[in-house]
């Protein structure tokens, strides 16, 4: 008999009593119905203590904000997905921006370059979670997974209108149970570790900095 069948048979032919199935009461996880303003404030108060940097921008202004932030950091090359937005807005902008590198071919063809020569990655988000200060990332062919992971700076665009109270609210509203992408992520700050004597250090494997541009 295969290991699979042996394991399943052991589990099915359990010797003990009927196992309890107590009711799952999720009310303990519910949060109040926050207004958009409340959600923004909560998002900020959850993300800033873990070194996420948040900037409120109006409409297309986010490019101006981005331009300032990147030039302060002397970013010379920024990775962007191949999707229509935000690429079109960046290209249409007259702001001073670093070189835009479009992620449009398989990583195998340019891995060294990605790991060694890219200073920042810009991604969209599929919303945010106020309670925990998290971004929902939903990588696609147009916005591949490594954009938010390998470059030392990750810049994420978040629409204020897509801020949810809790993870459960987001999952329900976006019907995650109907189908998940190959990889989905919650990102709540820059990469960090406390493995050396509980001392926090940022940028251990992923980005050292996370910059969130909240677009209203």
């Amino acid at each position: 008999m295969s290991a699979r069948d042996t394991i399943l048979q052991r589990l099915r032919n359990r010797t003990g009593d009927q196992l309890p199935t107590p009711e799952r009461d999720f009310t303990a996880m519910e949060r109040p119905d926050w207004s958009t303003g409340d959600k923004l404030a909560r998002f900020r108060s959850a993300m800033e203590p873990v070194h996420g940097e948040i900037h409120n921008c109006r409409g297309g202004d986010w490019v101006a904000t981005l331009s300032g932030l990147l030039s302060d950091r002397r970013v010379s090359r920024m990775l962007v997905g191949s999707g229509a937005e935000p690429l079109a807005t960046l290209r249409a902008s007259t702001q001073e921006l670093p070189d835009i590198l479009v992620y449009d071919e398989p990583v195998e063809n340019w891995q060294q370059h990605l790991f060694n020569d890219v200073d920042a990655g810009l991604t969209t988000t599929r919303g945010g979670i106020a309670e925990t200060g998290s971004l929902i990332l939903w990588p696609t062919a147009e916005e591949p997974r490594l954009t938010s992971l390998v470059p030392p700076i990750h810049v994420a665009l978040l629409k204020a209108s897509e801020l949810f109270g809790t993870l459960r609210e987001a999952m329900a509203a976006q019907q995650w149970s109907h189908g998940m992408p190959t990889n989905a992520l919650l990102v709540s700050g820059p990469s960090k570790t406390a493995d050396i004597e509980q001392t926090l250090a940022y940028g251990v494997h992923g980005p050292r900095e996370l910059i969130v541009l909240v677009v209203e």
Partner: peptide
């Protein structure tokens, strides 16, 4: 409240995807 990354994997690289 949450860790920096919560990584949900539901498949290998698919179709036109460029990494994974």
């Amino acid at each position: 409240h949450i860790t920096t990354y919560f990584n949900m994997i539901s498949g290998p690289r698919r179709g036109e995807e460029l990494d994974g």
